Computed example of a mutant assay.
Amino acid sequence: MSTVFLIESSPKSLYHSIQYSSRTIYLCWHHLTDAIREGTNQYEKAFGRNSKDLFQALYRSDEEMVKFMHLMNSIWNICGRDVITAFDLSPFRSIYDLGGCSGALAKHCVSVYPESSVTIFDLPKVVKTSREHFVSQRDDRIHFYEGDFFKDALPPADLYILARILHDWTDQRCVELLRKGYQSCTPGGGVLLVEALLHEDNSGPLTVQLYSLNMLVQTEGRERKGSEYSGLLAAAGFTCVHIHRTGKIYDVILARK
Rank of each mutant, 00 (worst) to 15 (best):
F150N: 06
G147F: 04
D171R: 05
L206P: 12
C174M: 13
L178I: 11
I165G: 07
P114K: 01
T129S: 10
Q209D: 00
P205W: 00
T186L: 07
Y160N: 07
I120V: 15
L197Q: 08
S116E: 11
S184Y: 06
H133C: 10
V126Y: 00
Y182G: 06
L166I: 10
K107E: 14
G181L: 09
I165V: 15
K125T: 01
S130L: 02
D171Y: 08
L198Y: 02
I120H: 00
F144A: 06
V191H: 11
P156E: 10
Y211K: 06
V126A: 03
E132L: 15
G188I: 12
L159M: 07
Y145A: 06
G189D: 00
F150E: 03
V191D: 03
V191Y: 12
F121P: 04
E220F: 13
V175T: 13
L159N: 02
L193I: 15
D148F: 12
E223S: 13
Y182V: 01
G147S: 09
F144D: 01
Q137T: 09
T129H: 05
R179C: 07
D139S: 00
N214F: 03
G221K: 06
K151G: 05
G190E: 11
V112G: 03
G188H: 11
I161W: 07
P187L: 06
A163Q: 02
F134C: 14
T207M: 13
D171I: 12
H167I: 11
M215T: 05
F144R: 12
D152F: 04
L154C: 04
F134N: 14
H133G: 12
F149C: 00
K107I: 01
V112F: 03
E223C: 15
K125Y: 14
S136P: 01
E176K: 12
F134H: 10
Y182E: 11
E220K: 07
I165E: 10
V175M: 06
P205G: 03
V191K: 12
G190V: 12
G189S: 02
S116H: 14
E200V: 13
H108N: 11
P205D: 01
L192F: 12
V110D: 09
H108C: 04
D152T: 00
P124T: 06
E220I: 03
I161Y: 03
Y160R: 12
D122L: 04
S130P: 08
F144G: 08
S203H: 09
R138I: 03
P124V: 11
F144Q: 08
N214P: 02
V126W: 05
V135T: 11
V110A: 09
S116G: 14
Q218C: 03
G147W: 00
S136A: 15
V191G: 04
L198M: 10
R131L: 06
V112P: 08
A196Y: 00
R141S: 15
R222H: 06
Y113M: 14
D140H: 09
F121T: 02
L193D: 00
Q137P: 13
R179L: 01
D139K: 10
T219R: 10
G181R: 10
P187W: 04
D140N: 09
M215C: 08
T219Y: 02
R173G: 05
V127A: 05
E195T: 13
G188W: 08
V191F: 14
I142N: 09
K107S: 11
C109A: 15
I161V: 15
K107P: 02
D152A: 01
D122V: 12
